[in-house]
């Protein structure tokens, strides 16, 4: 069954069609990578999926329901999590509180259980010792990891990550890949990624977006072999 489906989803800015009639589907449990050159419309597409920006036309179906008309917070409530391409943490709150905000919204737990869940998630991304630090005082890489932890804390069915490894160190990227493999199966993942190494090692399926349209779709091997993709993306990248 498809957890997420979009039909003819479109969004333009001024005259520019950033997302142009995209039909897209992710089956439950899959790790899907969304790739494409800069400006292809990847961020806009996922933002329209989770309701951060409004789509002009087309529909979004999630978990068997048409969510096209729902505001962002209702979509998140249904089991989506979204991490921002541009780091967007609550700089003046502690790392702990950043994650707790996500956990509290979704899980109706007591204070102690919430604390436990938060620490478990922070531990998973390696930030447990820094739980009392202000998010703004963390290094850039740690802030990226905190973003991921906030998403994890939401225990989503669909986890959308917009370029999560951007700015991470080598070792952190390794750990990130490990994390994705752990989540795979339980959580459906939609990963926008520029690091081809991460894409090839984690994704089961890849969708290539170019100028707002789907250019190709398939397994990593198929996409790697696709000449259109090579021309549009890999060749220039």
């Amino acid at each position: 069954m498809n957890l997420l489906e979009t039909r003819c989803l479109s969004r333009s800015f001024g005259g520019l069609k950033a997302v142009d009639n995209v039909d897209f589907a992710v089956p439950e449990g899959q790790v899907r990578a969304l790739i494409g050159p800069n400006g292809a419309g990847k961020s806009t597409f996922v933002a329209a999926v989770c309701g951060r920006i409004r789509a002009e036309s087309g529909s979004v179906h999630f978990d068997g329901k048409d969510i096209s008309r729902l505001p962002a917070h209702r979509r998140i409530e249904m089991g989506m999590a979204y991490t921002f391409q541009i780091t967007s943490v609550f700089a003046n709150l502690t790392a702990h509180e950043n994650v707790a905000l996500g956990v509290r919204r979704i899980a109706r737990l007591g204070r102690r259980d919430i604390d436990q869940k938060v620490m478990e998630v922070l531990d998973r991304v390696g930030l447990a010792e820094r739980s009392d630090q202000s998010a703004g005082d963390l290094s850039y890489g740690h802030q990226r990891l905190l973003e991921i932890a906030m998403g994890l804390g939401q225990m989503p069915k669909l986890f959308i990550m917009d370029e999560p490894t951007q700015g991470l160190a080598e070792g952190e990227i390794e750990e990130f890949k490990h994390l994705i493999r752990q989540l795979a199966g339980d959580t459906t993942i939609l990963l926008i990624e520029h690091n081809m190494n991460v894409v090839m090692e984690t994704a089961e399926q890849i969708t290539v977006l170019n100028s707002g349209c789907v250019l190709a779709e398939g397994t990593p091997e198929e996409v790697r072999a696709n000449s259109d993709v090579q021309a549009a993306y890999l060749g220039t990248g």
Binding site: H73, S88, L93, L101
Partner: peptide, 24 residues
């Protein structure tokens, strides 16, 4: 309370609070 924590989150970063699922 969770309500108050959310208000602080909105104060700090409204967009992020929305994308954590809060009805801002």
């Amino acid at each position: 309370s969770p309500f108050g924590r959310c208000l602080v989150a909105i104060r700090e970063n409204e967009e992020r609070a929305r994308m954590l699922g809060y009805d801002v």
